[in-house]
Write a protein that binds this DNA or RNA. Sequence first.
DNA 1: CGCCAGGGCTAGC
DNA 2: GCTAGCCATGGC
Length: 291
Amino acid sequence: MRITEVENGLILEDVKDFDAKHIFECGQCFRWTKNEDGSYTGIAFGKVLNVRSDYEKGIVILDNTNLKDFRDIWFDYFDLGRDYGAIKRELAKDPVLDMAIKHGKGIRILKQEPWELLISYIISANNSIPMISRSIGLLSEMYGRKIQYKGNLYYAFPSPSELHEADMEGLSLCRAGFRCKYIYQAVRMIYEGKIRLDETAEKDIDSVREILMEIPGVGPKVADCIMLFSMQKYEAYPVDVWVSRVTEYFFFGRNVKMKEIQNFAAEKFGGLAGFAQEYLFYYARELKIKM
DNA sequence: CGCCAGGGCTAGC
DNA sequence: GCTAGCCATGGC
């Protein structure tokens, strides 16, 4: 990968397996929006970044950043140290995954912030992706820090202490419905240090899942998403309605219990289950599989 | 009106 | 340990 500094940004060349559309639209993140020019603008780690990519040419253009932030934040955020070609070659030995990967060949699993994902995936329960994004955006507008970029206002996701300022009435304004009381309690558990997410992330996957599920609103699915998308537990295989459908449709041919799906994923994909899950999720939503 | 959305909680068995 | 019914909100 070659890096060139330009005015208020960077040009990355010889970048493999990177497609902004696949990365930002495969469902793992909620704070990136597409612009008219095809680029994406999003907020992470308290910073606004604009991204455009050309998969075939291997070019990624980052605007509103610099070399220091690239090294400190964005290299890891975009998981640029990982060989996705090798992952895809291994998974594509299965014909179903081969098809799914052709649809989302430029997916990379973002390394997001555990705190933000905890709240975001609590909101995700029995909710729709546009609604989830809206609630997270509203929370950020109400309690997060303002950031300006190209004349527009953006809002960082609020810190635990910032969200701790919110009472139930304030939280309910984010329109997350019955999940607001879970947010309220989760904020307090983290703010009071009852659970330390950074320390938790260091433990093995079963311990992490158990600890995360002590938090109200966090069940097995939400815990798996937090672990996969922010704690680098790539053996996690979050089973939502789409993954359930696509796994049943292609690998079972019938409805099965969640436990069976997870056993299947662990045996079939092993340590790459999380990557397989993302290719399949994106593929299932493209196909609009219903069962 | 109904059903569904990146599920989790609770009661009842 | 397992399952059924419930849950706020909004789109369709």
